[in-house]
Amino acid sequence: MIFENLPTTPRSEELIDKAFSRAARTGRAKSGHDAQTSMLQTASNILSDNLENVVTAWPDFDEVDPFYYELADALVDVDELRQSLSEVTWASRKTAEIRQEYEGKIRRNDLETARKFRKQAFARLADVVEEVEDDLLRIGAARDELKILPDIDPDEPAIVVAGYPNVGKSSFVNAVTRARHETATYPFTTKGIGVGHFERQHIRYQIVDTPGLLDRPPQERNDIEAQAVSALTHLADCVLFVLDASANCGYPIEAQLELLAAVEDQFDDVPVITVCNKSDVSRDVEADYYMSVTEDENLDTVLDAAVEAVGYEPELPFDG
């Protein structure tokens, strides 16, 4: 996942203490003008490099997959984050400029004046880093939010499972994946997204269960949840909508069909397959397929239909 390995973002005070303490040690190893120049170079390089590293650790949001872009924007406001990254880039360049400006002044003057210029340079370096303190805090907070986003590969074909709670979505996902699907709770869900995997003809498919997002009407979702659903529209290659005609799930079939219509509207660019689960209890609804997870009936048929709807063909290596 693109945000998982983002390093901890240092605070302004940490950077300044690190740079000046290292500079002091460097200065003690030399004397005269060399000591003053080395102190300036050490402090400036540490600040410039560390600030630059904060920025380069982040992916280019212009190249981030729309799925992850929308999830990130739902949580942290990508425009504000990019502005803060831009400010830190400015600070990195400014610290390097200050070093260049004062190196000549230190060399051209007597030692006492050189010390004054070095101290003046240190004060300006500190001012620059303190100026981006709020930006570093914003970047650090964004990193903490985004590193726990779901580990989903936008380049792998994905089947999204939708439907009201208790219709059998999670049971279906568990039954058709190699092992019990991986579940984690993310900031935009109440119960945690489940991600499972299975293979067909050496192609790995992701199957995504989305409690807290696609198990209730759009008007009941908050802004973050709504944007997370929007992100899923970029991810999904097919949607399986699970119905419970028996209404044992606690929701009348009319309400389930209304949610189906909303999902079809939201995912208008991908095939939506309707599946009536618990068909051993009731088949009293029109659906593309009928299955019973508890009776192990037609699960492979439904999964094969989803794979066919996805129609994924891996890119073959070019044979020149």
Rank of each mutant, 00 (worst) to 15 (best):
V64C: 06
S31I: 12
D304I: 02
A306P: 07
A96Q: 05
L316V: 11
V176W: 02
L136K: 08
N53A: 15
D268R: 15
A121F: 03
R25P: 05
Q83I: 14
E145W: 12
S21N: 15
F318I: 13
E97K: 01
E145G: 06
P252Y: 09
A35S: 14
Y251P: 08
R99L: 11
L316M: 12
N277E: 05
D223C: 09
L257A: 12
D127H: 05
V55H: 02
R216N: 15
E97G: 05
I148E: 07
N166P: 03
T190G: 10
V129F: 02
E80S: 10
D268N: 09
V128W: 01
V128A: 05
E131L: 08
E103I: 02
D244V: 03
R107I: 15
A126R: 14
H197P: 01
E70L: 13
A24C: 10
A309Q: 11
P154A: 03
I2Q: 10
A123Y: 12
V263T: 13
E70G: 14
V176F: 05
I207Y: 00
V272M: 02
N109W: 13
S170F: 02
I253F: 00
D65N: 13
D223E: 10
G104H: 03
D134R: 13
Q41R: 15
R99Y: 07
S171R: 07
E220F: 01
A121K: 09
E14T: 11
E130Q: 03
D49L: 01
V208W: 08
L259H: 03
C238P: 04
H33Y: 09
P154T: 11
T26C: 10
